[in-house]
Amino acid sequence: MRDKAYLAWSLLVLTLSYMVPYLVLRECRDLSLYAFWLALTLVHFAVTLIYLRGDVSWRSWPQR
Protein backbone atom coordinates (compact mmCIF):
# COMPACT_ATOMS: atom_id res chain seq x y z
CA MET A 1 0.00 0.00 0.00
CA ARG A 2 2.76 2.35 1.04
CA ASP A 3 4.73 1.61 -2.15
CA LYS A 4 1.66 2.09 -4.35
CA ALA A 5 0.89 5.42 -2.66
CA TYR A 6 4.45 6.63 -3.24
CA LEU A 7 4.33 5.43 -6.86
CA ALA A 8 1.04 7.28 -7.45
CA TRP A 9 2.36 10.41 -5.73
CA SER A 10 5.55 10.41 -7.82
CA LEU A 11 3.62 10.01 -11.07
CA LEU A 12 1.40 12.92 -10.02
CA VAL A 13 4.45 15.07 -9.29
CA LEU A 14 6.00 14.27 -12.66
CA THR A 15 2.73 14.99 -14.47
CA LEU A 16 2.42 18.33 -12.69
CA SER A 17 6.01 19.23 -13.54
CA TYR A 18 5.21 18.81 -17.25
CA MET A 19 1.62 20.14 -17.35
CA VAL A 20 1.52 23.19 -15.06
CA PRO A 21 4.22 25.15 -16.95
CA TYR A 22 2.18 24.89 -20.17
CA LEU A 23 -1.38 25.04 -18.82
CA VAL A 24 -0.99 27.63 -16.05
CA LEU A 25 2.37 29.41 -15.98
CA ARG A 26 3.36 29.64 -19.64
CA GLU A 27 3.09 33.44 -19.84
CA CYS A 28 3.97 34.29 -16.24
CA ARG A 29 5.88 37.55 -15.80
CA ASP A 30 7.49 36.91 -12.45
CA LEU A 31 9.45 34.07 -10.89
CA SER A 32 6.35 31.98 -10.14
CA LEU A 33 7.29 29.22 -12.63
CA TYR A 34 10.73 28.91 -11.01
CA ALA A 35 9.08 28.95 -7.57
CA PHE A 36 6.56 26.30 -8.66
CA TRP A 37 9.24 23.83 -9.79
CA LEU A 38 11.33 24.53 -6.71
CA ALA A 39 8.36 24.07 -4.33
CA LEU A 40 7.30 20.88 -6.13
CA THR A 41 10.82 19.48 -5.71
CA LEU A 42 10.97 20.40 -2.02
CA VAL A 43 7.55 18.83 -1.32
CA HIS A 44 8.54 15.70 -3.29
CA PHE A 45 11.78 15.54 -1.32
CA ALA A 46 9.86 15.77 1.97
CA VAL A 47 7.48 12.97 0.89
CA THR A 48 10.46 10.89 -0.29
CA LEU A 49 12.15 11.32 3.09
CA ILE A 50 9.02 10.07 4.84
CA TYR A 51 8.83 7.12 2.42
CA LEU A 52 12.50 6.27 2.94
CA ARG A 53 12.17 6.35 6.72
CA GLY A 54 9.26 3.88 6.69
CA ASP A 55 10.68 0.47 7.55
CA VAL A 56 7.91 -1.39 5.72
CA SER A 57 8.69 -0.02 2.28
CA TRP A 58 12.26 -1.25 2.44
CA ARG A 59 11.34 -4.79 3.33
CA SER A 60 8.22 -5.34 1.30
CA TRP A 61 9.72 -6.18 -2.07
CA PRO A 62 7.93 -9.13 -3.62
CA GLN A 63 10.03 -12.27 -3.38
CA ARG A 64 11.45 -13.39 -6.67
Partner: peptide
Protein backbone atom coordinates in the same frame (compact mmCIF):
# COMPACT_ATOMS: atom_id res chain seq x y z
CA UNK B 1 12.48 16.99 -14.02
CA UNK B 2 15.65 14.88 -13.96
CA UNK B 3 15.91 15.35 -10.20
CA UNK B 4 12.20 14.68 -9.55
CA UNK B 5 12.32 11.49 -11.58
CA UNK B 6 15.63 10.33 -10.09
CA UNK B 7 14.38 10.90 -6.55
CA UNK B 8 11.46 8.60 -7.34
Amino acid sequence: TYLLSTMF
